[in-house]
């Protein structure tokens, strides 16, 4: 394997996980750079996981000022703190201590205004509580980079979570009995994935997929920030659902009222779900960076109500 050996310090610290994914993977991790935008509870869980795993650097982006609500599922900062510092800086101060071998940095500004050259610096870009428009835009910029930049979008509403993954053209190794086998996966972009006509999707697709899309469109049409919803929006959102289902020839029962209502009303994060989604996301980014193990393609759903964590493949060629 190319590159320097792990130091004695790294070997001691990462002992238990090297036993899981091997030295080569650990070496790749330590040279990788990850960007996270939108530091809600799930993203913070992810940051913890990826710093413990030993990435080279983690860059945080979130200019919001702290509030009680914003910190409800954040274990890095005292919920009662009052500070003039933006959230990313407060999180950075705390995350730095988690692993002295990882550089933790802050990037100010609106990510969707940054050019391709900015995203090119990273191996993985994770956006959380991000608008539909920004998701598409950032995803496209990652795709235009000269090297592959893995893109992830994560959203948690009520006690449900969604992860979207775009690894573009992805080649990885997989252990088959005793030898390593090379595998290849083609991922669609977020825009391509959500453009797949609903009626051509598998019938047992998680209902969360549709509900998330409806609410995403609602937020974008009404100039809401992601997650800025309440139960009072239900009538308008149900109308939108009706319209969308008609155009897409999908039965409205695939997007149940109760589910939509839950997602609209449950704006306070549910910490167990943050831990679960942040954990799955962490594992996926580790897989993508290390090139080891089957990555999920291309959506993941968890709902604490039924307890299932389901992978859905929504690709244009997957009709």
């Amino acid at each position: 394997m190319d590159g320097e050996e792990l130091t004695e310090q790294e070997t001691a610290l990462y002992d238990r996980q090297i036993r899981v994914w091997g030295v080569d993977a650990q070496r790749r991790l330590s040279k990788s750079h990850v960007l996270v935008s939108g530091l809600n509870g799930t993203a913070v869980e992810f940051c913890k996981n990826i710093i413990l795993a030993g990435v080279g650097s983690l860059t945080l982006n979130d200019d919001r000022l702290v509030s009680d609500e914003l910190l409800s599922a954040n274990f890095l900062v005292d919920q009662n703190i009052s500070s003039e510092k933006p959230l990313a800086e407060l999180c950075c101060d705390s995350l730095k201590d988690f692993n002295p071998m990882v550089r933790v940095l802050v990037q100010k500004g609106d990510l969707s205004s940054f050019g391709v050259d900015f995203f090119e610096k990273f191996d993985a870009v994770v956006v959380s509580c991000c608008s539909l428009k920004a998701k598409k835009l950032i995803n496209e910029k990652c795709r235009k980079s000269s090297k592959r930049v893995a893109f992830y979008a994560v959203d948690c509403r009520d006690s449900c979570g969604e992860i979207f993954v775009d690894l573009q053209d992805y080649i990885y190794s997989k252990k088959k009995v005793d030898e390593m086998e090379e595998c290849r996966l083609q991922y669609p972009s977020f825009e391509e994935a959500i453009a797949v006509p609903w009626k051509s999707l598998p019938r047992r697709l998680s209902k969360l997929y549709f509900a998330m899309r409806v609410i995403e469109i609602f937020e974008s049409q009404n100039g809401r920030n992601p997650g800025q919803t309440s139960a009072a929006d239900l009538p308008v959102v149900l109308n939108l659902r009706k319209e969308l289902c008609e155009t897409q020839s999908l039965s409205e029962s695939q997007v149940p009222d109760t589910l939509v209502e839950r997602l609209l009303a449950g704006t306070r994060e549910f910490p167990p779900v943050c831990a679960i989604i942040g954990g799955i996301l962490g594992q996926e980014v580790i897989k993508a960076i290390s090139g080891k193990g089957d990555p999920l393609k291309n959506f993941f759903y968890f709902d604490a109500m039924d307890g299932k964590g389901v992978i859905e493949d929504l690709s244009p060629e997957n009709k």
Binding site: R16, Q17, R19, V20, W21, E45, K48, N49, L52, A53, P271, P272, V273, C274, A275, I276, G278, G279, I280, G282, Q283, I286
Partner: peptide
């Protein structure tokens, strides 16, 4: 063998 992510998920 142990990694942080699995523990976080299990704790949730």
């Amino acid at each position: 063998h142990a990694v942080a992510t699995t523990n976080a998920i299990i704790a949730g």
